[in-house]
Nucleic acid binder design. Structure first.
Lengths: 212, 212
DNA sequence: ATTTTAGTTGACCGAATGGTCAGGTTGTGG
DNA sequence: CCACAACCTGACCATTCGGTCAACTAAAAT
């Protein structure tokens, strides 16, 4: 028998199954985020997870399945901060809060960020549906909120979607280009702490509606 | 015989050699930028270049050599716009000009941008020397220029290195995440034209020294 | 025209790849 | 304690990988 079931995998019966699938996904995250889908090997993942390759394939039917599971789980986490943006809140505070949350994701889950970046770099072959579906829909919704704020004069005039791009670019950069950032900054700097302050200033100056 | 020489490859004798190495590098750029180093295969590159695999290996000694040649050539192009930043110029104009040049690179050489991104994502194993050497030195130099401008009150107070990070992140995002950007923007938008305007506003508001 | 050099390739090699399978071991409910 | 399911693995398979080589052809140089 195999440990996976194709239909929505409703139950996770045994404790050992939970432990091993978790170990596999953890190892796969490490390897996929560093080498991309094609550059990663099952042996590498199995090894990092402390399992034999056939044992790994007992829990997942294929390399693709491991990758897909990882991406699916990631997407929710990735979009949650944007979902949390409250139309009824104070515009500038809501945006800055989103930036902070997103930067914290970069700091605490850099491998997830790199996994996502890797997938997009390759043309998002395994995730394009989600992008043109859920993500696009959410962005449309939140862009409308931002545009309403602008129309009310509570936020400086900027193209809403490009504002979101800028938030993604600026926060994810610190995870995706971590090596470069740390090489250029000297040892005694904390990239994420400094980035937090900098981005706060940046979005404050960009978005604070001109008085009058 | 082989077509490559290890010592600085001074001469490129024949016309056919120029044509084929160019075709190989063009094909390799395509493949490496999409799949990363490990995900790319020599067969794929040879095929895209219209050559047989042994024929490709007649011009380059190994997969690694092709990749290295590509990266070395890229780094100069990548840093030139920063080098062009003139300490004697008007600060805000210099920065904005740098942003424009960098955005144009993203528009005209997106594959080069993705190749670079791929390499950094993987921890820059094949390019770390250049980053901690030439790049760091150039950044130190230009950061000093920016800090001087700030000290003179000709630019708003921002951390110079993070300012550079923000320029890289915001411009390269449009190349590296092209698929996502185009999916979210509707068909009739020109991402790079809009980005040009947006980034001009962004850096203007961020950097314009507060009057007084 | 002939020799030398540059360019090209099919066939091949050992290693690594994703994945299978038969059979073994371990855990668990009755 | 037994039976049954869950779990695990060595051996194996077909394919692909980076790279080599001897032999062939095309182009220059003499």
């Amino acid at each position: 028998m195999t440990a996976y079931q194709l239909d929505g995998m409703i139950k996770q019966p045994t404790r050992i199954q939970q432990k091993n699938t978790a170990a596999i996904l953890e190892a796969a995250l490490q390897v996929f985020s560093q080498h991309g889908f094609r550059g990663a090997t099952l042996d590498q993942i199995a090894d990092a997870a402390g399992l034999s390759k056939p044992n790994l394939l007992y829990y997942f039917p294929s390399k693709e399945a491991v990758h897909k599971t990882l991406l699916d789980g990631l997407l929710k986490t990735w979009l949650d901060p944007l979902r949390a943006m409250n139309p009824a809140g104070e515009p500038l505070a809501e945006i800055k809060s989103y930036v902070r949350r997103k930067l914290k994701l970069s700091r605490d889950f850099p491998r997830e960020s790199r996994l996502f970046a890797n997938e997009i770099l390759q043309g998002a072959p395994r995730i394009l549906d989600a992008i043109s579906g859920d993500l696009k829909q959410l962005v449309d919704e939140k862009a409308a909120v931002i545009e309403a704020w602008i129309a009310q004069g509570r936020l400086a005039r900027v193209p809403a979607r490009h504002l979101l791009f800028s938030i993604w670019a600026l926060t994810q950069h610190y995870a995706d280009f971590d090596v470069q950032v740390r090489t250029i900054l000297d040892k005694d700097h904390d990239p994420f702490a400094e980035a937090g302050d900098f981005l706060d200033v940046l979005f404050d100056r960009l978005l604070r509606a001109a008085p009058i």
